[in-house]
């Protein structure tokens, strides 16, 4: 008898914790999305919240920005692969290089964002350096111009997230059986050929993972970047407004939990839509 319940005693804390932090919110969030919540509860309003959110320009602007940020993922991948492949050659001092390359990921997003913000001021160090090099044309108003700000944001995100991508891809490349690379070397394959025909195919699953991680990040985990770089408002104007900030504003600034919950339901649904097929494909691939 004791034997029978023993495993459940071990998993009970996990189940309680997950029910509280994930189970309860999911259930409550769906409920909220159909209510006009003021304070802690409110009357049922049916699909009204969804109509409100989907009818609002700001929501679609935010969604649009998240989608545009997705376009940065190929850049992130190429950079990560390139850096990983170079480190994988293990030239003198590569271990130090690896530590340096991973450094951006150790810095907190708010720290990265504040540094970037100061460096990219109109008369900040980056522009001063560019002007000093005679490249006045490139000294843009990185943060102040609505046309440029989203690109700047994407650049900062890539700068930090590529560090993680590089380390993950590098770890995979280094675990590739030496004999494959050596065989390619003996056949006289160039660095590029070895990368193309040996390392890339064998790292495909990790590269794929980094890509999916990138998608999740761009859709749902860039709050800190946006909050810090966009001055807490997604500025200038609404040029860096994204879905997470929209939820944050609805919840804390406008005290409309119902609206916030509605967006969360859709965001969670979208994440599941991306992840479920990915994991199912992977499972099938494993078999």
């Amino acid at each position: 008898m004791r034997k029978k319940i023993e495993p459940y005693l071990y998993v009970a804390p996990l189940i309680l914790l997950l029910l509280f932090v994930f189970g309860y919110p999911v259930a409550k969030m769906v409920e909220f999305s159909f209510k006009m919540v003021r304070g802690i509860d409110g009357p049922w309003v049916g699909w009204r919240n969804y109509e409100l959110v989907l009818g609002q320009d700001l929501f679609w602007t935010s969604v649009g920005h998240n989608i545009q940020l997705l376009l940065a993922i190929p850049v992130l991948l190429v950079l990560s692969i390139f850096a990983a492949a170079l480190l994988n050659e293990q030239p003198a001092g590569w271990k130090t290089m690896r530590s340096i390359v991973f450094l951006p990921y150790i810095l907190a997003i708010p720290v990265v964002a504040v540094i970037a913000k100061q460096m990219l001021q109109l008369d900040g160090p980056v522009n001063e350096t560019l002007r000093g090099a005679g490249l006045d044309g490139l000294a843009l108003d990185w943060l102040g111009s609505p046309d440029v700000a989203l690109f700047t944001l994407a650049g900062v995100i890539i700068w930090r997230e590529a560090a993680l991508g590089t380390i993950l891809i590098l770890a995979r490349m280094m675990s590739i059986d030496e004999s494959h690379t050596e065989a390619a070397r003996l056949e006289g394959a160039s660095w590029w050929q070895r990368l193309r025909h040996v390392q890339l195919p064998q790292s495909a699953s990790v590269i794929e993972f980094v890509g999916v991680l990138g998608i999740i990040t761009m859709v749902s985990a860039i709050f800190a970047y946006v909050y810090m770089i966009g001055g807490g408002r997604g500025g200038p104007g609404t040029s860096t407004m994204v879905v997470e900030l929209y939820v944050f504003n609805a919840l804390t600034r406008m005290s409309l939990p119902g609206i916030a919950a509605t967006v969360c339901v859709m965001l969670l649904g979208l994440c599941l839509l991306i992840m479920v097929p990915y994991f199912m494909l992977r499972q099938r691939g494993d078999r």
Partner: peptide, 26 residues
Amino acid sequence: ILGVSTSLMVVPPVTMIVPLFVLYTQ
């Protein structure tokens, strides 16, 4: 249990905070 727990790794934290914020206020 393992499957559910593992899949929660990809749930964006932002989607969990609204009900918890309301509950914590309460």
